[in-house]
Design a protein around this nucleic acid. Structure first.
Ligand SMILES: [Zn+2]
Ligand SMILES: [Zn+2]
Ligand SMILES: [Zn+2]
Ligand SMILES: [Zn+2]
Lengths: 132, 132
DNA sequence: TTGCAATTGTTATGTTATTACATCAATTGC
DNA sequence: GCAATTGATGTAATAACATAACAATTGCAA
């Protein structure tokens, strides 16, 4: 998917996520944008919906939060499932993908005649720094 | 983990999940147990907390819902990550695991010196019947 | 019996997400 | 130009999911 020109609200939300050190909840984004005129959750959720669609932002299902994609401009997302390692102490998120994992999951899915739409892989734990 | 005798509330919640055809939200469980004296969400969440701890129930992060484990008595969960295929049309959930997927994820994790605590793999899409 | 830990009950509150409806701006076709 | 359409935005209200705080009860062991 090629990313169209972002609208004002989409840009604001995306900038907040890009500058953040870790994942942010929609309401945290809202708070950070109050000075820019944001007043309601929907302004954030609507922008996020588009940013997710464009693939420039990811939603972390297990922590109800959002991160900017770590592979901007890269089309790796079209080649497979994205996985995340999420540090529960410092919030650091590492995005990666592994073709073999994709292959195994997709071959299981084919065996079941299941038609996958969206796959989530999230590893919660402690990053190297926090585990020490 | 060996499962201790369930308390009254834990049994009620577990029975509802076992008899259900698909995953249920905590509030849906609450509604189904009003006739048995349940009045507040915490009664459900507290029971679920224990059932998750005992490994007899799983939480589906991507849909904020809970299912009874499909492998009762089986200790397969101690051998690896559990994955789920979730039909977004009929709610059917299939639980499986794949050692090769575990191995690839855990070897990536080791390379990063990341210490995993809990891993989520959820494939949302359409089951064979619903995709037809 | 007394003390302790686990479970339960109850109320209130916090957090995440969507519905419904109104308004505004850019584009299209006449 | 000007209505019609479409996409984006603003606002209020509500729904859905989850936890905090505190009281009461139960079961059991010292
Ligand atoms: Zn990405
Ligand atoms: Zn960390
Ligand atoms: Zn299971
Ligand atoms: Zn189905």
């Amino acid at each position: 998917m090629t990313t169209p020109q972002l609208t004002k609200n989409q840009s604001l939300v995306f900038d907040v996520l890009e500058k953040a050190e870790g994942p942010l909840s929609a309401y945290t984004i809202l708070d950070k944008l109050r000075d820019h005129g944001f007043r309601a959750p929907l302004q954030v959720y609507r922008a996020l919906e588009k940013l997710l669609e464009y693939g420039v932002v990811h939603r972390l299902e297990s922590i109800n939060s959002f991160v900017a994609c770590a592979h901007p401009g890269d089309d790796c997302h079209s080649h497979g499932i994205v996985a995340f390692a999420i540090c529960e102490s410092c919030g650091q998120v590492t995005e990666f993908h592994d073709h073999e994992v994709d292959h195994r999951l997709m071959s299981w899915v084919r065996g079941q005649k299941f038609k996958p739409e969206k796959t989530t892989i999230e590893i919660r734990g402690l990053c190297e720094a926090c585990a020490a």
